[in-house]
């Protein structure tokens, strides 16, 4: 099967078949958009919640939650998706170094909140999520079915 790896800060898009994979989600959040009728899927590996002016947000919109969601929509629509049919799934936003937990929200938590806020802004329903906690994740979007599989080391993979 055609496997496309989506690295930190990037966005991947596929239509019809294949799988979009992102490995090693720690505090980062994997966000997938899927249009079931067109079988178009897009996946972003979001690194931080907010972009700044004069940053690389135009070059690498997938890096920040506030630029990743509109860019995901753009990429998927260009690949033939209907923007009113998107379903979103999200995974990641963990806090790996558990004993350093403080009262401040972790980077992972901020990322998750920012991604959810952006998806709400664009009225995209979130149909599956596996977020927070203290374990790293791998996330795969199967473009023929829209199934998202999330794997944590030492645990059975789950479908979200």
């Amino acid at each position: 099967m055609n496997e496309v790896f989506v690295n930190m800060g990037q966005i991947g898009v596929l239509r019809g078949k294949g799988v979009l994979v992102t490995v090693g989600l720690g505090s980062c959040v994997g966000v997938s958009l899927y249009d079931p009728s067109a079988k178009v899927g897009a996946l972003a590996h979001v690194f931080l919640a907010k972009s700044r002016a004069n940053s690389d947000r135009e070059l690498m919109p997938g890096k920040y939650a506030d630029t990743a969601i509109p860019a995901l929509i753009d990429f998927a629509v260009k690949a033939g998706a209907n923007r009113n049919k998107f379903e979103a799934k999200i995974a990641g936003g963990a806090h790996l170094f558990d004993n350093l937990r403080s009262d401040m929200p972790s980077v992972g938590q901020k990322n998750v909140e920012a991604v959810i806020e952006q998806l709400n802004n664009y009225s995209i329903p979130i149909t599956g999520k596996d977020v927070l906690g203290k374990r790293g994740r791998k996330m795969s979007l199967y473009v023929d079915s829209g199934i998202v599989v999330v794997t944590i080391i030492g645990q059975e993979s789950i479908q979200i």
């Binding site: 930190m8 490995v23 090693g24 989600l25 720690g26 505090s27 980062c28 690194f47 931080l48 700044r52 940053s55 690389d56 890096k63 963990a94 806090h95 790996l96 170094f97 558990d98 004993n99 350093l100 980077v107 992972g108 203290k134 374990r135 790293g136 994740r137 791998k138 080391i153």
Partner: peptide, 25 residues
């Protein structure tokens, strides 16, 4: 400072350290 420990995927650990440091460029 107090150290932390994690047993996990190399990539997840790496990006968590970079994000913690606020590395963007």
């Amino acid at each position: 400072v107090v150290p932390a420990i994690a047993v996990d995927m190399n990539g997840a650990i790496w990006e968590s350290i970079l994000a913690d440091a606020g590395i963007t460029d």
